[in-house]
Design a binder for these strands. Structure first.
Lengths: 212, 212, 212, 212
DNA sequence: AGGTAACCGAGACGGTACGTCACGTCTTCAC
DNA sequence: GTGAAGACGTGACGTACCGTCTCGGTTACCT
């Protein structure tokens, strides 16, 4: 949190690595990002090889390996760059409504075709880098959902002094993820609402209240 | 509740309608099953290749390809053969207690080292056959858990005429799976109980009641 | 002077009842051998890469790596298979005549175009396997030249009880190799004869006599 | 007589024809020369890459490519700069003695460890520039050996009016080079003397006499 | 007891992808 | 405006594993 201390540079201290934000490097990155997305859509995760991305992007294999190391690195970079969108949680006027809408977004994402979200989850099991990126992505998403809980508290829907928003949000969305991503059961149109209602009900009963 | 640990038991009679149940064929199957489990423990899923299994089992590569086709087929067979253990859900005298115990089993399975359960989940994302086998396995496990709900109903813990036992069980266990398998957050010792309490609370409030 | 060994590079007796003449393995070997020679002629040693040989032969890269390991292995195999020709040293009726003829063969080999011999020598500096194969090749050639010395002795051209034939032959041929392969001086039409005369003269003076 | 060992001395003044003798250019050249020699000693010829030399010398890759073009250029420059040492042929009082001493130097150079001379020879087969430099180097060495023949003539060891000193010297040294560099036979302690005696004997018999 | 279909061992091969290395060029940023 | 730092295109390397093929040899089940 403190400002960076001025480097007490010793003789021959290498200067700060200069960035090259514009030009070829940036163009290559954009080309590769696009190719990753297209390849994922076209062939699914199992078709997402470095070779295929390189061929599709027109960038050379070696360059991809140099900059992204492997498929996990590619996905991580794409995921991170995707985290900068302006996503915001729904605001329906009630906790259960918000959670239901959230779950419906989740369900839609997990069942869309091509199955990009599933591909990313699959990737996270093969590449630590992709796993970490996905973790960061979800962390960011859950953090942005905090207002859902705060608004509910402000409306008096939640008892007690404070509520563990993350626990509540995870409890609300977990059944959808579990059913679709792990159990691989067919989509249940009622599940988003059911899971939301369950979590909202438990929250109203103080299940996620923070002591103190 | 988690995918099974590799048992080192000897070949039990496969109830499959196989043509030649005895002798060499069965021995080969047992050798390969053992090698799959050992390899999974030793090298993780990414090290679970047909070649490695063949080498470890002493069975020839070609034979493995002939009978199991690929890694997914190997895992599916092993998973299916593991479904015949005598697992039964806990019985603690209360719905919340049963669910908590169940969740603790799940959490233990997902965090054990070597991470066999995680390896199987990872496999399910790469092989349709393994995915189907894992689906069958979980289906079987949830089915065996039905008595937990039935006992709770008999004790009068659940309102209404009938409860969707599967929905209740999924809701109870989903947060644990979600946190550990997807979000990859560190294990939270309180989560099994919290998730169980949440689900039990919602169930008590009729969230999983079946109409009619 | 042992009789020429039967060549082992052609398909030997195919016990195949209904198969095409020659098994796949032998056909692959023949294809690759041919491609090595062609590539060497077409592109020289620096163009002799595994990839190029594979492409030219129609055999897959991986197969070449599996069986020959690297360029050195390829050359070694080709060299060894070439050692089974029926080469015999010249027989002109005099030691100096034989050595001159031998040197002229050496000079012709080292100056031919495409420079296959030079390419093999170059290869021997990059691959231990090729070096060893070349060593074996020369050893075989010098061994076959022993009759040159024996005939000279029988004619009474050599003093003493015995002559170190290898030393004599190396002394006779070394200047040609040295000038053309190492010093890379232009070919000197007189050198084969000069070097032969020098060696013959020294031999006649007993320079290569074996004591005892 | 063998290619020079890498001297680890610091930059001596380059007697460059028209270059700026001092300053950065000379310093860079010295750094690179040193790095080439060190790299050759440390990793052998196969480890002598432009990248490695640049890294070892601290000079940028691009600079090396600009000034020396490739590995052959590097070696050629180093070899040429090494030709300026003060090497002189032995002077033992007899032709055979001189040639023996010369051969022993050659043999020592070809069998030293690390095998720098062999590395240079290897390089000469891969880079025309290095080949030409090595040719120049040997030419210079043989030229400096002329006094060996002149002294022998002055002592009356050589018949006729004149002797082809180069031919004599090549004949004397060729067996050593041939055996060690091409045939790769183990070092024979007697060979330097044998080859010297052979050549001296032939020379005494007028084998290298120049007509006219 | 013997036949025979099914199964297994063995080895090579074509093929995709991996990840690395070095070469030599080209572009961009900083001076 | 120039030139050094570094990113890139290019080609080759050697490896892992995949899945297939063919051949030949066993084995277990059935008649």
């Amino acid at each position: 949190m403190e400002p960076p201390a001025p480097s007490t540079d010793m003789p021959q201290d290498p200067p700060a690595p200069r960035r090259r934000p514009g030009g070829r490097t940036a163009r290559v990155r954009a080309l590769v990002h696009g190719a990753v997305r297209e390849q994922l859509v076209a062939e699914g995760y199992d078709g997402l090889t470095v070779d295929a991305v390189a061929a599709r992007s027109g960038v050379h294999r070696t360059t991809v390996y140099r900059r992204w190391r492997d498929v996990g690195g590619l996905l991580a970079d794409v995921l991170d760059s995707a985290a900068d969108d302006g996503w915001a949680p729904p605001d329906t006027g009630s906790l259960e409504g918000d959670l239901t809408a959230l779950n419906e977004e989740v369900a839609a994402g997990l069942t869309e075709d091509p199955p990009i979200a599933m591909a990313l989850i699959a990737a996270s099991f093969r590449s630590p880098e992709a796993a970490e990126a996905l973790r960061r992505f979800w962390d960011d998403r859950y953090r942005r959902c905090a207002p859902v809980v705060e608004r509910a508290a402000a409306r008096g829907e939640l008892p007690g002094a404070a509520t563990d928003d993350r626990a509540l949000l995870v409890a609300a969305t977990a059944p959808v993820y579990h059913r679709l991503a792990l159990l691989r059961a067919p989509a249940d149109p009622a599940l988003p609402a059911t899971a939301a209602r369950t979590a909202a009900l438990a929250a109203g009963a103080g299940a996620f209240a923070v002591p103190g």
